[in-house]
Amino acid sequence: MASSVGGPKFRRGDRVRVLSLDVKGHVRTPWYIQGKTGVIERSHGPYLNPESLAYGGSGLPAQPLYLVRFNQLEVWEGYTGPGDDRVLADVFEHWLEPA
């Protein structure tokens, strides 16, 4: 964990949409959740930003990191499992907006 400016914007249970940011470099937001809506499952606290660290940067300001939960049926067209199945991924705050 790292220190960050301000507290986390989202709390457990908040609905969020994952942005599709056009970042060319190193990112940690997999393609399959971009544009999808999920629910904050857990707030991990602030972490240095990998998009900056990957290029020798300081990673500051640190970004709050969240575990976000998605319904499999909403992520994958034709998901064959039951409707309660979930996929969860860690997403940095600057990739999220309220939904």
Binding site: G25, H26, L53, A54
Partner: peptide
Amino acid sequence: LRSDELRRGIE
């Protein structure tokens, strides 16, 4: 060598 840099290099 940060793991983020290692990953950027791999990618």
